[in-house]
Amino acid sequence: MPWNPGDDVISVQRGPRPGGAGGAYRAFGETLRGLKTTFARVLEGPITIQYPEEKVPVYPRFRGRHRLHRFEDTGLEKCVGCSLCAAACPADCIRVVAAENTPELRVSAGERYAAVYEINLSRCIFCGYCEVACPFDAITMGNDYEMSDYNRSDLIFTKEMLLAEPFDRAPLRAEGE
């Protein structure tokens, strides 16, 4: 078929020419609109949070770093080393090695306890399945979110670290906030 260049010509619509009031508006209009908000809030003062001196409060159900718990009355660990958290963990970051309680060394209330309980926080996705899986409410997701470290191996939290009170607690949001 013979080629007819006329068929492929497209017409382009051009914008208005630069300059004039319209030009000025186009150049600064949006900026001014933004500045309107700025100037409107000037009186309120700065609201920057001075992290790490100040911390953002979290919602109560925020899933932060895990915590292991003890019974308040006996001081025994709630964890019996059942390893269900490890089974539930989609990131495979929990390792539990159980051992048996003896009359001399009683660590938990059941027959067994977790001799080794490690969470590799560099792999954890904070999904909270471990908390859901735990039949004894021994592990819960805490509120801490400050977990950065200089060394990967330091991100493997051991049982003692998980049982201990965190140094700094992340503040909770108040009711209705």
């Binding site: 009359p103 060394l105 660590v107 001799a115 049982k159």
Partner: peptide, 9 residues
């Protein structure tokens, strides 16, 4: 690892 000795009674 240290575990507080707990009175079995």
């Amino acid at each position: 690892m240290t575990i507080d000795p707990i009175d079995p009674r």
